[in-house]
């Protein structure tokens, strides 16, 4: 990363020569819009991506459940495909990258819809308190990108980095199957 931003000090400090301060600039695209932050001024170099998204951009869909990569509640997508734990990624590592948070999903997103609709007898709902849900939704988005036709066993493996203490795992697995089905139908329609 090169220093990209130079800022003249507002006031000279007595006894010290007035000198321009240069900052390295972090450029990150979040949900389609580019944002720039001067590292050391707007954000700290050790700031996590999760903190940047929540505190600096107000994107509070992602949650900080454990802050150590154990619960998956902070999951976002990087460069359109891969799910990453934003509490384990430094903000500066997102330089020139595209980040998608749950706020960036359309209202009719098939994964969001499937999580909301899940209520079939025998499997419960896909959410109760809902605090882990954005993390699960983004993890499922990333997973279905990689594996559009998953089996139940593959889903259980893929979502085992996320914790739902309400224990809606059965409903979440069903919602994931339903989302895959919705996406299959959409693909078939589009190719027809």
């Amino acid at each position: 990363m090169k220093p990209l931003l130079q800022v003249a000090p507002k006031r000279g400090v007595p006894g010290i020569a007035k000198k321009a301060i240069s900052y390295r600039l972090l450029r990150v695209n979040v949900n389609g819009a580019w944002h720039e932050f001067a590292i050391g001024r707007d954000i700290a170099p050790n700031m996590t991506l999760a903190f940047l998204l929540r505190e600096k951009l107000g994107l509070v869909g992602l949650k900080l459940g454990c802050d150590q990569g154990a619960c998956g509640a902070c999951t976002v997508l990087m460069d359109g495909k891969a799910a990453v734990l934003s509490c384990m990624v430094l903000a500066v590592q997102a330089h020139e990258r595209h980040i998608l948070t749950i706020e960036g999903l359309p209202e009719d997103d098939p994964v969001v819809e499937s999580f909301a609709e899940q209520s079939a007898p025998g499997y419960g709902t896909a959410l109760q308190c809902g605090i882990c849900t954005p993390g699960f939704v983004m993890t499922v988005k990333g997973f279905l990108n990689e594996n559009p036709d998953p089996t139940l066993a593959e889903i259980k493996e893929a979502l085992s980095g996320n914790i739902c203490r309400c224990g809606c795992y059965a409903g979440i697995a069903q919602a994931t199957l339903r989302a895959a089905e919705k996406m299959r139908i959409k693909r078939t329609r589009e190719s027809a």
Binding site: F115, A116, Q118, L127, V137
Partner: peptide, 15 residues
Amino acid sequence: YRPRIDAKEKASGKV
């Protein structure tokens, strides 16, 4: 058998 009343809001991360 039906979704929760807050299901849409929660699934879309708005809560």
